[in-house]
Structures are given as structure tokens and as C-alpha cells.
């Protein structure tokens, strides 16, 4: 069931949720859209956050000698591309990584469906901003907030006015995807070439900063290490030489090998093993890359001509 809410209704909805959850939202601070505690709906920014809300599920770093307590958090203002990332990660780490699992199961994401494509974004290649899998999904058109909830969360919408148009999401999806078109993936998992010059070309410029991994809503790799305060894990980057290092060194000694691995994982290995591409078209890796390496080039590159 799709409901049609007013701005005041949205605040009531949030208050209902706040009875069970700590409520966070995307919010402007010093011109940045960041995630932080909110106390009213008017604080919520509908702009794309400056970074993915991945930190709610996989902490930048944390001690791992004890499993975290379940803290119920609701996060409003998440963009669909970021949320889709978590559903993709689920395929690999849900119920396997206990840290991720306990947070995933206790975090409610309320995603906002975009009405305009963000600069550089290419979510339409992966279905566009209207998600099939979501917790609570919001489409803001004019004065109305159209809201739909997964059955797990349907109860929060009880009492609000059902929308007269129950196809509003479907229509928006069609229109959005038509308006912005898409970059055809075109069997990228079969097209990519191991010996492509693209990988060495990227390596010429890449400075191994890790931004592509850290910004990515689908990158979940971590490093485990001990220091003087305990055993910890932290976000890792497959671009670094020490990533998956073995006694004999890294099996991918050259930077170009590691860059290729990143794209092969995103567009081939995950697709073959999980049936999905490990990319949502959010463009965050491009936005944060200091040397403008563009993942879209991996998709559009004409490998046959090489």
C-alpha cells in the first residue's frame, strides 16, 4: 500500500518511529549534507549526502572482541543508490559478518527517491531510483510525500491516508528512466578484457588514496589487526598493496592488477556468484577520486577494439 503524507504527517511518522529508534537524518552542516541526529523533519535535507551512510552498518574502525549491542537506529534521507548498496552487500555478508548483521537488522533506512539525476550519476543502469527492496521508501512530489513500506515496517503507516494513485512509484520510475536514459551494461561481465590497456591507464594516474573504496556503498572489505588497545577491524581498500597480502606478498603486485580486480569484482565475479553487479551507479567513487578515474569508462570502453 502506498500512502500520501503531508509534511506534518512525515513528522508524525518520524515521531512514531522515534518511539523505538534513535532517529538520524541527512542534514546540512557548513554546506555539507551529513548524517547526524535530528529532532524535526524540517532538518532533513533531500540533497544527496556528501558520503554514503555505510558507517551505520560497517564502522570505519571498531574493536571486535565483543559483538556490538543492538542499537535501534532509523536513518532518514538516505538516497536509493546508497540503500541499494546495502541490499547488495547483504548477499555476501548478512548472517556471516555478525557486526554487519546485528546493525543491519536493527537499522531502519528511509530512502528518498530522486526526482532528478545527480551530476555523473548512472543509477538507471541498475534500475533507477525506485527500489524493489527497501525498508520505507519516500517519493516527494510537490506538497505530497508518497510513502511505501516493506511489510516489516508497514505498521508505522497505519492511519495515514492511502494514496489515490497506487502506481505513483511505477510511473515515476518509468518516467525517470526514460528521461535520463541509461548506460547499457551490455553483458559487461563478458565484455571486460583481462589484458585491456584501461587498467594500466588508470594505474598511471591512481595515487592509492582508497577514496573509491571508502566512498562506495557496496564495498565491504575490512582489515583485521591488533594494536595496543585490542583487536580491531577497519575499512580496507583493495587498491592498497597490503590488501590480501600473503606470506609471498600480494598476489596482485602491480597497481593495475589491483585496479582491475576492483572492477572485475564489481562487474564480473559478483555477478557470476551472486547474480548482481556490485555497483549502484551512485558515482561516489568518481566524485571522490582525486584523479577523475571514472567507473563508467569501464562499462562504456570498447574492449573489442583492443
Amino acid at each position: 500500500m502506498i500512502y500520501e503524507l503531508t509534511e506534518e504527517d512525515m513528522w508524525r511518522l518520524l515521531q512514531k518511529i522515534a518511539e523505538e529508534y534513535d532517529v538520524f537524518g541527512s542534514k546540512e552542516e557548513l554546506g555539507e549534507v551529513v548524517f547526524s541526529k535530528i529532532s524535526s523533519f524540517s532538518e532533513v535535507s533531500e540533497k544527496k549526502s556528501s558520503y554514503s551512510p555505510k558507517d551505520f552498518l560497517i564502522k570505519r574502525s571498531e574493536n571486535i572482541l565483543e559483538i556490538p549491542r543492538a542499537e535501534k537506529k532509523a536513518v532518514i534521507g538516505v538516497k536509493s543508490c546508497d540503500l541499494r548498496g546495502f541490499y547488495l552487500m547483504d548477499l555476501q555478508i548478512l548472517n556471516k559478518d555478525p557486526f554487519y548483521t546485528v546493525r543491519r537488522q536493527n537499522t531502519l533506512f528511509i530512502n528518498f527517491v530522486c526526482t532528478e539525476m545527480c551530476p555523473g550519476g548512472f543509477c538507471t543502469s541498475f534500475g533507477g531510483p525506485v527500489l524493489d527492496d527497501y525498508d520505507i521508501q519516500v517519493l516527494h512530489i510537490g506538497q505530497s510525500y508518497f510513502v511505501e513500506a516493506d511489510p516489516r515496517y508497514e505498521r508505522y503507516l497505519a492511519g495515514f491516508r492511502p494514496a489515490s494513485d497506487q502506481d505513483v512509484f511505477v510511473k515515476h520510475s518509468k518516467e525517470f528512466n526514460r528521461k535520463y536514459g541509461k548506460i547499457e551494461l551490455n553483458g559487461i561481465e563478458k565484455r571486460m578484457k583481462w589484458s585491456s590497456k584501461l587498467w594500466t591507464e588508470f594505474a598511471n594516474y591512481c595515487i592509492s588514496c582508497g577514496a573509491c573504496n571508502y566512498s562506495c556503498p557496496t564495498c565491504y572489505c575490512i582489515d583485521v589487526y591488533d594494536d595496543e588497545t585490542g583487536r580491531k577491524k577497519e575499512w580496507d581498500s583493495c587498491i592498497l598493496e597490503g590488501f590480501t597480502k600473503t606470506a609471498a606478498g600480494n598476489v596482485r603486485p602491480d597497481l593495475s592488477d589491483r585496479l582491475r580486480q576492483r572492477f572485475y569484482h564489481k562487474f564480473k565475479y559478483y555477478k557470476l556468484s551472486k547474480g548482481e553487479y556490485l555497483c549502484t551507479g551512485c558515482n561516489r567513487c568518481v566524485d571522490d577520486c582525486p584523479v577523475d578515474i571514472d567507473i563508467k569508462e569501464v562499462i562504456t570502453h570498447d574492449y573489442d577494439k583492443e
Binding site: 557548513l30 554546506g31 555539507e32 551529513v34 556528501s50 558520503y51 558507517d55 564502522k59 570505519r60 574502525s61 571498531e62 595515487i207 592509492s208 588514496c209 582508497g210 577514496a211 581498500s237 592498497l240 566524485d287 571522490d288 577520486c289 582525486p290
Partner: peptide, 19 residues
């Protein structure tokens, strides 16, 4: 524990950071 992001509005680094 720290979480670090580049400040995208910065005239110096425009949101970019190194390792």
C-alpha cells in the same frame, strides 16, 4: 574511533583526500 571525509566545499581539496 574516527570517521573522516574530505570537505567537498573546500577550495583547497574539494572533498578529496589521500591515504
Amino acid at each position: 574511533h574516527y570517521t573522516v571525509h574530505g570537505y567537498t566545499r573546500s577550495v583547497v581539496n574539494e572533498g578529496k583526500l589521500c591515504i
